[in-house]
Amino acid sequence: MFKSIHHAAIICSDYPVSKHFYTEVLQLEIIAENYRADRDSFKLDLKLPKGGQIELFSFTNSPPRPSYPEALGLRHLAFCVDSVEKVRQYLLDNGIEVEPVRVDEFTDKKFTFFNDPDGLPLELYQCS
């Protein structure tokens, strides 16, 4: 029935800051960028490897979403990487706070967390 996840949609509070984070720091390729005047909103489509996408939206006066302590709903987005340590160091070198690397007790795979500019939890997960 399901083949894959097509996209994850993220609403940001400061569009230029989030656009810079996702395109320059995380190096995601822009597929399309559109301004919707009727909503005073940008929609930025970003390409993920293997066909997935992130849709980055800007809306005025969006309420904050609780994240910590654990709130109901989507918990985080995880990115598959070849080396958690290398990507973690890259993020640290670019001024992004990243938690220490941990090991999943069930899979023995390395992982760690960091946040986007709005505090959305993002995970690096060792897939190789």
Rank of each mutant, 00 (worst) to 15 (best):
M1K: 12
F2R: 14
F2T: 12
K3N: 14
S4K: 13
I5Y: 10
H6S: 11
H7K: 09
I11G: 01
S13Q: 13
S13W: 04
D14M: 00
D14F: 00
Y15D: 01
Y15V: 08
P16D: 03
V17A: 12
V17Q: 12
V17H: 08
K19Y: 05
K19S: 06
K19A: 03
K19C: 00
K19W: 01
H20K: 11
H20R: 09
Y22Q: 07
Y22D: 08
L26V: 07
Q27P: 01
Q27G: 00
L28E: 05
I30D: 05
I31Y: 09
A32H: 15
A32Q: 15
E33V: 03
N34D: 10
N34C: 07
Y35Q: 04
R36S: 05
D38R: 11
D40I: 06
D40G: 06
K43Q: 14
L44M: 07
L44A: 07
L44K: 06
L46M: 14
L48I: 14
P49I: 13
K50T: 06
G51Y: 08
G52H: 04
E55D: 13
E55R: 00
E55W: 00
L56W: 13
F57H: 15
F57R: 12
S58C: 05
F59L: 15
T60G: 14
N61I: 12
N61W: 08
P63V: 10
P64W: 08
R65N: 01
P66A: 15
S67E: 08
Y68S: 12
Y68G: 01
P69N: 03
P69R: 07
E70G: 09
G73A: 06
G73K: 08
G73Q: 07
L74S: 09
L74P: 02
L77M: 11
L77D: 00
F79W: 12
C80P: 01
C80V: 07
V81L: 03
D82S: 09
D82V: 04
S83M: 05
S83G: 04
V87L: 10
V87K: 05
V87A: 02
R88M: 07
Y90I: 06
L91Q: 04
G95F: 10
G95Y: 11
I96F: 02
I96E: 02
E97I: 03
E97T: 09
V98Y: 01
E99T: 11
P100L: 00
P100M: 00
V101S: 06
V101K: 09
R102D: 05
R102Y: 06
R102I: 03
V103M: 02
D104E: 12
E105D: 04
D108I: 05
K109D: 04
K109S: 13
K110C: 02
F111G: 03
F113V: 02
F114M: 07
N115T: 15
N115F: 15
D118C: 13
L120C: 09
E123G: 07
Q126R: 08
Q126S: 10
C127H: 08
S128G: 14
S128I: 09
